[in-house]
Every structure is written in C-alpha cells, then in structure tokens.
C-alpha cells in the first residue's frame, strides 16, 4: 500500500515529462498547420507581429547562439581553471574561502544577473566601445558566462577529485611538473566529467531566460556583431506571454513551436551529459 503510494510519486515525474511533451506538441501542431516545418526551421525572417508575418526561426537561433557561444567562451575555461586551481594548487584555507563564494554565485537568482548586466556590464562595454547598443548580446553572454561558472567549477572539481591519486603520483614520479600533471594526466583522466559539465553549462546557457530578456533586447535578427541588440528563443517566449497576445492567435501558438525547439535541444544536451557522467563514474570507481 505504502509502496504503491510512493511508486505513484515516482511515476509523477514521468507524467510531468509526458505532460510537457504532449501539451507543447498539441499547441505546436496548430502552428505547423499554418507554417510549414521547413519554413520555420530554415526561414531567415522572424516577424510574428507585423504583416506580412514571417516565421523563420533562424534569427532567434542566431541570438541564442551568440549568447550561448559567448557564455561558453567565458564560463567554460574559467570554470575548468577554478576546478584545477582548487584541486591542484590552492592551499586548503584558500579552497575553503573560494568554495562558499562559488556557492553564493550559484545561488544568485537569474533576474539579479540581468540587473547586473544592464547596470554594470553594458555601461562598462559602452565605455570600451562607444558603438555598443544599450541592449546587446555580448553583455548578456558575459553574465550568462558568470552564471554557469560556479556550476562548471563545481562539476569539474568533482571530476578532477575522482582521478585516483596514484595516477597523479605516477606522473610526479616520472619527473613531471605540477602543470604537466594537470594538463597531461589529470585533465585527460577527468575528461568525460569535464565535457559533461561543459555540456550541462551549454544547455543551461541555451535555456537561460531572465538575464537574457533583460540584457539582450528584443530585436530578432541575424547578425555577426555581438554588440547589437538581438532576441533569443527564450526572450521571444517571454515577450509574447507578457504582452497581450490573444490566445489561439498564430503568434501565441508560435511560442509553443519555439518551446519545442528549446526542449529538444536541451534534452539532446542533457542526454549526452548524462551518458558521459555515467561512463566517467564507472571509470572513476
């Protein structure tokens, strides 16, 4: 009896997943009856609000790409660096100082990062480069990079910690310096865990909403300039749902098509990371 009740709790998660997929699909089907999948995925013009309407998702993908790419550029190497520093170089008092800093950073709500981007990072970028727009992809990318930093750092830290001591000692015994052991022994041994942390960070940056909505703007366009205003997939969903779009209209339905794209890509990332973490656990033990 109790077991059945608890089983229902566990089953609840599966139901939630199915619920997400079915409800999104149901609304998106209505959208795809009016806009072909090909037009949606390959179109280069996103203009859902004005006539003539056009639903090519690539401009939103471009905005999301800039933010994710920039965040990766900042967050991944820095996170890995922190993981290595904490494990191989830092004395324990410094480690005990840095760890809480990371935990605080990880606990800061995303809307605060958005505020930070608007009031600190963007003016700072504008000081460096006067042509930077008020809303720009670079500022969003920087804060999203800072946002994923603690996650990458703590996952890399775990992965590096799981490397057996004997393997590192063998490196030292052969006369390698600390940095040589770190780059040629520790990182390769912990690689699958490190890559898994990178993928999870990418997935998080990809689905990040509030900071990006505040900082990156709402101008869907394909651009090579990261200092221009763009719009991400998530920011578009927020824009439509906070505006007064009538339910059942095509732009209302379009957020579910965008949502499915978002869900599909982040699931892909997560499956990959899950697989890698599993693989690395069995190696580590």
């Amino acid at each position: 009896m109790v077991k059945k009740l608890l089983f229902i709790c566990a089953l609840f998660c599966v139901i939630v997943t199915l619920g997400i997929v079915f409800l999104l699909l149901e609304e998106a089907v209505g959208f795809f009856q009016q806009v072909s999948i090909k037009e949606f995925l390959l179109g280069t013009n996103w203009a859902p609000m004005f006539e003539p309407r056009s639903f090519g998702v690539l401009p939103l993908v471009c905005g999301t790409f800039w933010v994710t790419f920039g965040a990766a550029l900042i967050g991944l190497p820095t996170g890995l660096g922190i993981g290595l520093f904490l494990n191989d170089f830092a004395p324990s008092w410094l480690r005990n100082l840095v760890k809480p800093v990371l935990e605080i950073l990880a606990g800061i709500p995303t809307v605060v990062y958005g505020y930070f981007a608007l009031t600190v990072i963007t003016p700072w970028l504008q000081n460096l480069l006067p042509s930077v727009e008020v809303f720009n992809a670079a500022s969003a990318a920087i804060v999203v990079g800072l946002m994923v930093l603690p996650m990458v750092a703590s996952l890399c830290d775990d992965a590096i910690k799981a490397v057996p001591r004997s393997v590192k000692e063998a490196g030292y015994a052969l006369g390698a310096t600390k940095s040589e052991v770190a780059t040629q022994v520790t990182i390769p041994s912990a690689l699958s865990g490190i890559i898994a942390s990178f993928i999870l960070a990418l997935s998080r940056a990809f689905g990040e909403t509030m900071a990006v909505t505040l900082a990156a703007g709402s101008t869907p366009k394909i651009t090579l300039n990261p200092f221009e205003s763009v719009q991400t997939l998530t920011a578009y969903i927020v824009q439509v749902s906070t505006g007064d779009t009538p339910q059942g209209s095509i732009e209302y339905k379009s957020i579910f098509a965008v949502g499915i794209l978002l869900l599909a890509v982040s699931l892909l990332f997560n499956m990959l990371a899950f697989y890698l973490v599993k693989k690395y656990r069995t190696v580590g033990e």
């Binding site: 997400i20 409800l23 990040e208 969903i237 949502g259 982040s266 997560n270």
Partner: peptide, 23 residues
C-alpha cells in the same frame, strides 16, 4: 525513471512555465 529525472532537471525553467500555463 532515472533518466527521466536527470532530463527533467535540465529542462529550461521557461518550458515549465509553458506547461504550467497549459495545465
């Protein structure tokens, strides 16, 4: 269920918002 939970943890929060809106 294991894989499912790991995946649910990675679903962007805004997608939960869409689920909540519908459900």
């Amino acid at each position: 269920i294991d894989i499912n939970i790991a995946n649910l943890a990675g679903v962007p929060s805004i997608v939960y918002g869409m689920l909540g809106l519908m459900l």
